[in-house]
């Protein structure tokens, strides 16, 4: 697989997942603003932008948050921006991805303009979740399990681990009493799975444990970190040099085992710090993957004198 194409696939996986999870995160945020009686809206808004590392200067209104994280097409940290970027990457890798995936990404981007002034953001978020599910479903049903699939899935699982970590940071958002765990489970579509697995009412420790380290639930952080590790093994094969890819696995594995082997109470006491550590591990792994597989642009400048 061409390095350039692999990079595009990796980012398609990331952007689509990012759009999905950002929609979930914003949905829960707007809900908090409505329902939390003691909410301090400006600082809650500022804090959610910080979680998404979308920088702030002035006091932030609700529509600023929506503009930056939902509708701004120029920033890849917004839903519209991620979906647009996913489509641009798909265009670059057009001959490798299937027609169905391409068309679903392409029409999604075209329909974005319809939502830019959505009266009810919630409907926009539902639509985003639906469209990203369509893209993922089609990709899964039409992609050979070769390197194309591996890079797509690698990007997806890294981004999911990263976004769940960001989502959990909203638990300790400034200016709110914090999202309750039932809402967080629902946001991750995990509430029903939690009830079936834990067979008990939602308690802080158990809910946290479920979203952090559950082995079987596909939206727990540890599940996705482990997935990324094993995909890296698949890509690398057995015989090749494993130094760089090994370092990516190392970063991910360390973050995962930290979650798995620490007492859950300890993690909860320092949730923002722990979650940032997960995000940093994902970023490190992503950089290493780039260096290993997507060679930086080697621009050769030729001039006549030199020849």
């Amino acid at each position: 697989m061409l390095s350039r194409i692999a990079e595009s696939l990796f980012w398609i996986g990331r952007y689509v997942e990012r759009a999905d999870n950002t929609a979930r995160l914003l949905d829960v945020h707007l809900n908090v603003l409505l329902e939390d009686p003691w909410v301090d809206e400006p600082s809650a808004n500022a804090s959610i932008l910080t979680v998404m590392s979308a920088g702030t200067e002035a006091p932030v209104t609700r529509s600023d948050v929506l503009q930056r994280l939902a509708f701004d097409r120029e920033r890849t940290s917004s839903i519209a921006g991620s979906l647009t970027a996913a489509r641009e990457n798909a265009r670059r890798a057009r001959e490798v991805i299937s027609t169905e995936v391409w068309e679903s990404l392409n029409t999604t981007r075209m329909e974005l303009s319809r939502w830019s002034q959505a009266a009810r953001p919630h409907e926009y978020f539902v639509w985003v979740r639906e469209r990203t599910a369509v893209v993922r479903g089609l990709a899964s049903a039409t992609t050979s399990r070769d390197d194309a699939w591996h890079f797509l899935e690698l990007g997806r699982s890294l981004e999911r681990a990263d976004m769940i970590a960001r989502l959990l940071m909203t638990r300790s958002l400034d200016g709110t009493t914090g999202v309750n765990w039932t809402t967080l489970l629902r946001t991750c579509s995990a509430h029903e799975a939690y009830l079936r697995t834990v067979r008990a009412l939602v308690t802080e420790e158990r809910a946290a444990e479920f979203l952090l380290v559950d082995r079987l639930f596909p939206r727990s952080i540890a599940y996705n970190l482990e997935m990324a590790e094993s995909i890296l093994t698949d890509i690398e094969g057995s015989e090749r040099s494993r130094t760089l890819a090994g370092r990516a696995q190392l970063a991910l594995g360390r973050a995962r085992t930290n979650l798995e082997y620490s007492p859950v109470r300890e993690i909860l006491d320092d949730l923002p710090g722990q979650m940032q550590a997960v995000q940093r591990a994902c970023a490190t792994a992503s950089d290493i993957i780039r260096d290993r597989y997507f060679l930086p642009d080697a621009t050769v400048v030729w001039n006549q004198e030199a020849l």
């Binding site: 697989m1 061409l2 390095s3 350039r4 890079f151 890509i235 597989y293």
Partner: peptide, 9 residues
């Protein structure tokens, strides 16, 4: 004098 493409492998 030989042409190659850069791939992940």
């Amino acid at each position: 004098g030989r042409v190659y493409m850069r791939t992940t492998a």
